[in-house]
């Protein structure tokens, strides 16, 4: 089971590589336009792609970029995991218990509508400029999203299949694993993908406002120095990492989850 899963993941990853030709050409044309614009403007405010790649190379060589990228990814990983686990539990509870849902639904609406910036500022004010405050701010921002998605998934659980599991005495664990989880999995994955996109944007603001390392902090520094090449190089590195996670992990997982569809 596990080795076949791994094989499938590899195959899926290979498949997705096969379909990169068009996007690659499209990105290349974007770089070309950028190069022409940079050459035409000839200003340090719009460095050429080549200059950005040189900065990127230097950043990697000195280890500075990898250091900040690593710190940011660590924060991303922790807050992402926390938001997913807590949000999933909350979402399932709300989906299963209408009374609980009626009570907490207004809370969710309130939290969904609080701007990310406000949460971040309040966390820093209340908990100090600490790592805990940074992580908490990100989790509080993302958690309502996950909960709402999973609540939707739980509400749409197939009653017929749950009844079948009861009659055939699946028990709690088998029901969770074979009946409920496969139905919730697409919702978890949706929450994960939108979550990743949301969290990494928030996390940069968190770092910019209250940390002394990480991509957000570095970008802030470059901003004060008007170092556009630095900004673009760091952005590029980050986008590449996030996109790689999407391509090599989330998309294959998505296809694996849908393997039984005809």
């Amino acid at each position: 089971m596990n080795s076949s899963f791994a094989r499938r993941l590899c195959r899926e990853a290979a498949n997705s590589l096969g379909t990169v030709t068009v996007p690659a050409a499209s990105l290349l044309s974007l770089a070309l336009i950028w190069q022409v614009a940079a050459w035409w403007l000839a200003s340090p405010l719009l460095p050429s792609p080549a200059a950005v790649f040189t900065t990127l190379g230097q950043g990697i060589a000195t280890g500075e970029l990898l250091h900040h990228l690593g710190i940011t990814l660590l924060r991303l990983g922790i807050s992402f995991a926390l938001a997913m686990v807590l949000g999933t539990i909350l979402g399932i509870l709300l989906g299963r218990h209408p009374t609980l849902d009626r009570w907490f639904d207004p809370w969710l609406t309130v939290f969904l509508n609080i701007p990310a910036l406000v949460t971040i500022i309040l966390c820093y004010v209340w908990f100090g400029l600490s790592e805990t405050a940074a992580i908490t701010a990100v989790v509080v921002n993302k958690l309502p999203n996950v909960a709402v998605t999973l609540r939707e998934g739980t509400r749409h659980l197939d009653r017929g299949l749950l009844e079948m599991a009861r009659v055939y005495r699946f028990g709690t664990w088998k029901t969770l694993r074979h009946v409920i989880w496969p139905q919730l999995y697409p919702f978890v994955l949706t929450a994960a993908r939108t979550g990743l996109a949301l969290i990494w944007k928030i996390i940069l603001v968190v770092e910019l406002l209250g940390r002394s390392d990480g991509m957000g902090y570095q970008l802030h520094l470059f901003f004060q120095l008007f170092d556009v090449a630095g900004i673009l190089a760091y952005t590029l590195a980050f986008v590449i990492v996030i996109q790689t996670i999407e391509w090599t992990l989330l998309q294959p997982l998505d296809r694996y989850a849908r393997r039984w569809h005809r």
Binding site: G160, L161, E163, M164, V167, Y168, R169, H178, V179, P182, W260
Partner: peptide
């Protein structure tokens, strides 16, 4: 122990 054949087959589509 009960067996129940429902109006719809109610098989787990992912198994």
């Amino acid at each position: 122990r009960l067996g129940y054949v429902f109006q719809e087959p109610r098989l787990l589509p992912w198994r």
